Simulated assay, not measured.
Amino acid sequence: MAEQVVQVPGDSVSGALRAGFEYYRALERTAEDNARRAGEYRVGIPVLALGGAAGWDRGDQVAELVRRFRAHLATRF
């Protein structure tokens, strides 16, 4: 089988890296925006939020997050 060499233009790699870094740079602003929005309104439609009791054990954290945006929340674990 012949070896195949693929060359990626340098500008596309740097663009991808820049986009990836921008995602992480925006996390703090996103958290601030979400906190502000949670105080401004409640979502009036059904919301499905899944968090397991095993593995990462995020059930309570997911419920608390959704509770900020929902007027009424029923949880089951």
Results as ranks from 00 to 15, higher is better:
His72Leu: 06
Arg29Gly: 11
Pro9Thr: 04
Thr30Asn: 14
Val47Leu: 05
Gly20Ile: 00
Val47His: 09
Ala71Arg: 10
Ala19Gln: 09
Val6Leu: 10
Ser12Thr: 03
Arg70Glu: 08
Ile45Cys: 13
Ala35Pro: 13
Ala71Gly: 04
Gly39Trp: 05
Asp11Ile: 03
Ala38Val: 06
Glu32Ile: 04
Arg18Leu: 02
Arg67Tyr: 07
Val8Pro: 08
Arg67Pro: 12
Glu22Met: 03
Arg29Phe: 10
Val6Thr: 12
Gly51Arg: 06
Gly15Trp: 10
Ala26Gly: 11
Phe21Glu: 03
Gln61Asn: 09
Ala54Val: 10
Arg29Glu: 15
Ala63Lys: 04
Arg42Asp: 00
Leu17Arg: 14
Glu40Val: 01
Glu64Met: 04
Ala49Trp: 03
His72Thr: 04
Trp56Glu: 09
Arg29Lys: 14
Ala49Thr: 04
Ala26Gln: 13
Arg42Trp: 04
Arg18Met: 09
Leu73Phe: 00
Val5Glu: 12
Arg68Cys: 02
Val13Ser: 08
Gln4Trp: 01
Val43Tyr: 15
Arg70Asn: 09
Leu27Gly: 14
Ala53Thr: 15
Ile45Tyr: 13
Ala2Ile: 10
Val62Gln: 06
Val5Met: 06
Leu17Phe: 08
Gly55Arg: 07
Leu48Glu: 11
Glu28Met: 01
Glu3Trp: 02
Arg67Glu: 02
Met1Thr: 11
Ala38Glu: 07
Val6Gly: 01
Val8Gly: 08
Ala35Leu: 15
Phe21Leu: 09
Trp56Asp: 11
Met1Glu: 12
Trp56Arg: 05
Arg25Val: 11
Pro9Ser: 02
Leu73Trp: 02
Leu50Gly: 07
Gly15Gln: 02
Gly55Ser: 07
Gly20Tyr: 01
Val5Thr: 14
Arg70His: 02
Gly10Gln: 01
Phe77Lys: 07
Arg42Leu: 00
Ser12Ile: 03
Arg68Phe: 06
Arg36Leu: 15
Ala19Ser: 06
Arg42Lys: 08
Gln61Glu: 09
Asp57Leu: 00
Tyr41Ser: 13
Gly44Met: 02
Val66Met: 06
Arg42His: 08
Arg76Gly: 07
Asp57Pro: 01
Val13Gln: 01
Glu3Met: 11
Arg36Asp: 15
Gly39Arg: 00
Gly15Ala: 10
Phe69Tyr: 14
Val5Leu: 12
